[in-house]
């Protein structure tokens, strides 16, 4: 049972298509785990469709050019434009191979564009004895998308956010002062939040993280990480 879901307005921005792609990536990953939010998201699409269908056309009074219609009809005959194949389905994704500790992790469909094969195939950068990071992409708006992989019981350094941070638990679980987060949970932290996540002792924890701006480590002993992370990689 998942306890942490995207806020309604985040789901609405997703359903309407206005959510930034990096945030949408986290929502899409959550939807793969959460039937309830999938249902909500589909309903939110119906809301959009209703608004779409009831648009006032007088505002854009100019009628459709008959030439445009002829053009579209002429394109229907184009053999190269025939039937599209169905979109990639979840079941088409190959199951990832068992990892070194014998567990078979499944890479979410939405991440398969970055992860060919298993999580192990990524370039993991060790940033502390218990923490590894793999960057998936950086967007031109400054946001970063990365995976974090923390050993069982591993502590994340104390940090504050300078922008929004989205976390989606892909494997394992972690906790902080606000509670425990399990596989599929979606967590949005706003800038200014300070927290100190600890991974549960039973298993390693892999999270998808989207950072709108670099995070700042606030602990006396971990401040040295700041320049390294600014320079290198996303972190959470």
């Amino acid at each position: 049972m998942l306890n942490h879901h995207p806020m309604p307005e985040v789901l609405a921005d997703y359903a309407s298509g206005s959510l930034s792609l990096s945030h949408a990536l986290c929502v899409a990953a959550h939807l793969e785990h959460c039937a309830h939010c999938r249902q909500m998201s589909d309903t939110l699409v119906h809301v959009g469709a209703q608004l779409f269908e009831s648009q006032s056309l007088q505002l854009h009074g100019d009628s459709i050019d008959e030439g445009l219609k002829q053009k579209v009809f002429s394109m229907l005959d184009d053999e190269t434009l025939q039937l599209d194949s169905a979109p990639v389905s979840i079941s088409d994704q190959p199951a990832s191979k068992p990892t070194s500790n014998g567990k078979a992790y499944k890479v979410p469909r939405c991440l398969s564009q970055f992860i060919k094969g298993s999580f192990d195939s990524l370039e993991w950068v060790r940033v502390s004895p218990s923490i590894k990071i793999a960057t998936l992409c950086r967007d031109k708006d400054g946001s970063q998308v990365a995976l974090s992989r923390v050993q069982p019981g591993g502590k994340m350094p104390h940090h504050a956010h300078t922008g929004d941070e989205l976390t989606l638990v892909l494997e394992g679980s972690f906790s902080d002062v606000d509670g425990i987060y399990r596989k599929g949970d979606f967590i949005l932290r706003n800038s200014g939040d300070r927290h100190k996540p600890v991974v549960t002792k039973d298993a390693e924890c892999i999270c998808l993280m989207v950072l709108d701006a670099p995070i700042q480590f606030t602990g006396f002993f971990t401040r040295w990480l700041n320049p390294i992370l600014r320079h290198n990689h996303a972190f959470g």
Binding site: L21, A24, A86, P87, S91, C110, Q113, C137, D139
Partner: peptide
């Protein structure tokens, strides 16, 4: 502007299967 391919993020209703 992004390297993220939206094709993987938004399906056409219904979500398959």
């Amino acid at each position: 502007q992004s390297d993220i391919d939206p094709e993987y993020l938004w399906s056409e209703i219904p979500a398959e299967d």
